[in-house]
Simulated scan of single mutants.
Amino acid sequence: MQNETTKIAILVAIATLVFLLMPVFLILYIRSYTRHKKNHFLEKQNMQQKFESEMLQTRVEVQDQTMQSIATELHDNVGQLLSLTTLTLNSINLNDGEKAKKKIDNSLALVNKSIKELRELAKLLHGEQLVENGIGHAIDQEINWLNKAGSYELKINNQLIDLQITSPNKDLIILRLLQEIINNIIKHAQATDIQIDSHLANNILHLRVAENGIGFNPEEIKSKKSGMGLNSIYKRIEMINGKLILNSTPGEGTSISIEVPYP
């Protein structure tokens, strides 16, 4: 009988202990869950802030690149056209009517060409709108400016011109990636031929830029993720869950392929 009483007392003690400890465990669990949820929220908030900061930086860099293109175009193209117009007009001899008419006609043609170039510059000033018109048009605009340099043999296959879907944030980053790649080619590659291909397949946007320049050792670049602006390129690719494929051989040129889930 005493054994039964002892067992009952032990069971009651255990049940009481469990009953008392359950709220403690429950409180600890709630605190842990709340802390985890708060940390998760802060982490998401920090990620969003970093993304917005990076997007702002990308916009600034795109605008800066735009301003550089405009400055170069004004100096090298429009400025020369207007200077040539001035020289032509100053050389007109009104006593020779036939030659004067030809020079006036030539001057008018130069002025019309200058106006056309200025209209193109006005479009470039609205870089954000260009992206809103689609990544295909943005790529086409960059190709046009590269073509005006006259330094490269270009082979272009841009299948994104008529793309009906857009993703403004991704489009802006993809445009900036293309600008960085082109800048690297101009500064470092010593290339004469450039090939640019872009298309959309199975909800993946593909952009490939290849050139026949001096090339480099890609393993060193991949391990360091630095040099030639590639650190920035890798970082932005990760932002939009993309993938970069880099192939290069010293003396045989370089190709960079970008694959981005789209839209």
Rank of each mutant, 00 (worst) to 15 (best):
N93T: 01
F51E: 13
L81V: 11
N46R: 14
F51L: 15
V24S: 08
Q190N: 15
R176Q: 07
D140T: 08
E73D: 14
F41M: 02
E180Y: 14
R119C: 00
L207F: 08
D64N: 08
N144F: 07
L17F: 14
E132I: 02
E128W: 00
P263I: 02
P218A: 04
V260T: 13
G213N: 05
T85L: 10
P263W: 05
E259F: 13
Q159G: 01
G215A: 04
I70Q: 10
H199A: 05
L175H: 11
R176L: 06
E180L: 14
K243E: 13
L178S: 07
D162M: 07
L94N: 10
L74D: 06
I194T: 12
H36D: 13
Q49H: 06
I174T: 13
N144C: 03
I181T: 14
L108A: 14
T249F: 02
L121T: 00
D105G: 04
D171P: 09
S167D: 14
I194R: 05
L154P: 00
F19S: 11
L175E: 09
E61W: 01
N90D: 14
Q57V: 09
R208I: 03
L84G: 02
I221M: 12
N46Q: 12
E180Q: 15
L154H: 07
A138P: 09
R119I: 02
K7S: 07
Y152D: 00
N183G: 09
N231E: 09
S198A: 15
L205Q: 06
I10S: 06
E211I: 01
L200K: 10
L21F: 15
K116D: 04
L17Y: 13
A210W: 00
L74K: 05
A9R: 15
G213P: 11
V78Q: 05
E259T: 15
L130C: 03
E252L: 08
W145S: 15
G136T: 11
F51W: 10
L163Y: 07
K103C: 08
T66C: 07
K103H: 13
S255E: 13
D193P: 01
E220D: 12
Q80S: 00
L17P: 09
T34R: 12
K235Q: 11
I92Q: 05
N90K: 14
Y234D: 01
S32A: 11
A122F: 00
K37G: 03
N212C: 02
A191T: 06
N231G: 14
E259A: 08
L28P: 02
F41S: 02
G253E: 03
K155V: 07
L110G: 05
R176M: 03
D197T: 04
I181Q: 15
P261L: 05
I10Y: 11
A15Q: 11
N183D: 08
L94Y: 10
A191K: 09
Q164Y: 06
M239S: 11
K38Q: 10
Q49F: 05
L74Q: 10
E4H: 01
Q141V: 08
S151R: 12
L146Y: 12
N93R: 09
L154T: 06
P250M: 11
I174P: 04
T5H: 04
T86E: 15
E120I: 01
N231M: 02
N202Y: 06
V78L: 10
T34L: 07
V18P: 03
K99F: 00
S53W: 02
T6N: 05
Q129H: 05
D105Q: 08
T254Y: 09
H199G: 03
K103M: 15
E132L: 09
I30H: 13
G213W: 01
E211N: 13
S83Q: 14
